[in-house]
Structure formats: C-alpha cells, structure tokens
C-alpha cells in the first residue's frame, strides 16, 4: 500500500493487504487536501486478500468516500477485486484488463455488494449472465456492457484525475453525492437534494472565487471551503 498525500490527487496502489487498504481509505476521508482518488495496482492480490479478510471491509470504506474515485484496472479483476472496483465512481480499463464475477461457480455469492452494484452498473440481464456463467470479459466487452467507462492507458486515468482535481473541491463532492443519490431517490427527492446542496454552496468561499475567476477570465484558486 503506497499513498502520496502531497497532491490533490490521492493515489492508492493496491497490493495484498486489505487491512491496510481499509485504514488508508479511512485516513483519506479525513484528509482535507485530497480532491480525487486514483485507485490502481494489483487488483488480483487485493481481491484475494479481501476474500481472506473477514472483518475489515475496504469496499464499504471506498464506497463511503466523499471525494470522487477513479479505478484504473489493467490485468485480472475477478470476484472480490471486481466488487472493490464496482465501489469506484468511474472505472477505466487498460487493454489487458479482464473482469469476472465467478463466486457462484465456486458455490459462493458476492458479499461485498457485487450483486447490487454489478446490477446497477450493467443492468439486470448482463448482471445475471455474468454472475451465473462466471464468464470472463475482456476490456472491449467490459466497455460494451458498461462495466467500464472507457478503455485507455494509465495516462488517461491521470488526466481524468487531474481534470477532477481542478474542480471546486466542495462542488465535486456534492456532484458525487447528488449523482450517486440519483440511483436511490425518486426524481423529485433527488432534485430537492440537488437544490439544497446547490444553495448550501452559496456559503462557500470556493463559489465566490469561482465566479470571481470567471469574471476575471483566470483559473480559480480553490481552497476547499
């Protein structure tokens, strides 16, 4: 597990230590300087350690993060690893990425949200197909089913993270909160949440700075407050 805290882009590189991952994610949520998380590394090892670890749940910690999360996957992302990736907001894949939800083929079912998040990501038909057959999807197939947002190289993930890090940090968190809630709320209730968050932003220094910078045709200097 490696972290770099001196950057608005937080980077976590996955390895075989699920306990450390949970701790790192909890620490990250308390880090006011981090504006976006780029999660990459050895998904396979992380998935295996997640299967063995019974107490700590990095998937729940990842899903609860306030900042937007990008998952960069290149290589095998099976079972628990896929459940972890599904808790990210945006998944990007390299050409050698391979996805599989094979629990049921081994007499288990996902227990870190896989049945719920996979269904929301790709729809009921594709989710049942993947869960029941244990079929492996390559990057192209994962893109076509909507499991990953795009296929590219790691620099694309870095570029996306940099673009998100340029947004107003509070605004970015509220965008994430409102869009994530859109999956669970009726339209009217979702609009109410959006309006309340939007009006709450009126109180932030970042909004004032954003409007000032726009008027002065310069790049805003956001402070996250």
């Amino acid at each position: 597990m490696t972290t770099d805290n001196h950057d608005p882009i937080a980077r976590l590189t996955l390895d075989a230590d699920a306990v450390a991952l949970t701790a790192a994610l909890l620490a990250l949520d308390a880090d006011a300087g981090a504006r976006v998380l780029l999660l990459s590394g050895d998904w396979s090892a992380a998935g295996a350690s997640l299967r063995d670890a019974s107490d700590d749940d990095p998937v729940a910690a990842l899903a609860a993060l306030r900042i937007p999360v990008i998952a960069w996957v290149d290589g095998d992302c099976h079972d628990e690893a896929l459940e972890l990736a599904l808790a990210a907001d945006i998944r990007l894949a390299g050409e050698s990425a391979a996805f599989r939800m094979g629990h049921a083929r081994e007499g288990r079912i996902p227990s870190h949200g896989g049945t719920q998040r996979l269904t929301r990501a790709v729809g009921r038909g594709q989710a049942l197909r993947l869960l029941l057959t244990g079929e492996t999807l390559d990057a192209d197939e994962a893109f076509r089913t909507g499991l990953v947002h795009d296929i590219g190289v790691v620099e694309d993930a870095e570029e996306l993270a940099a673009a998100i890090a340029d947004a107003g940090p509070v605004a970015a968190q509220y965008v994430k909160e409102a869009i994530a809630a859109s999956a669970d709320l009726p339209l009217r209730d979702g609009m109410r949440l959006e309006a309340d968050l939007s009006i709450l932003l009126h109180s932030t220094a970042d909004r004032a700075e954003g409007l000032r910078a726009f008027a002065e045709k310069r790049k805003p200097r956001f402070e996250g407050r």
Binding site: P68, D89, I90, R91, R120, A121, G146, H149, D166, A167, G168, V170, A171, Y174, V175, K176, A178, I179, A180, S182, A183, L185, L187, G190, M191, E194, A195, L197, S198, L201, T204, D206, R207, A208, E209, G210, L211, A213, F214, P220, F222
Partner: peptide, 24 residues
C-alpha cells in the same frame, strides 16, 4: 469548475439517461 453544481435537475436527469459514470 466554477465551484458550483448543476441546479436545474442535471445531477438527477443526466444519470437517468446516460448512466452514473458518464454523468459523474
């Protein structure tokens, strides 16, 4: 990018049309 969020329903309508990741 201006420190605001969409406020005419965009955070709710867009993901319903194009899905959460693209909307995000």
């Amino acid at each position: 990018s201006l420190g605001l969020i969409p406020a005419a329903g965009g955070t709710q309508s867009l993901p319903r049309i194009v899905g959460l990741p693209r909307a995000m």
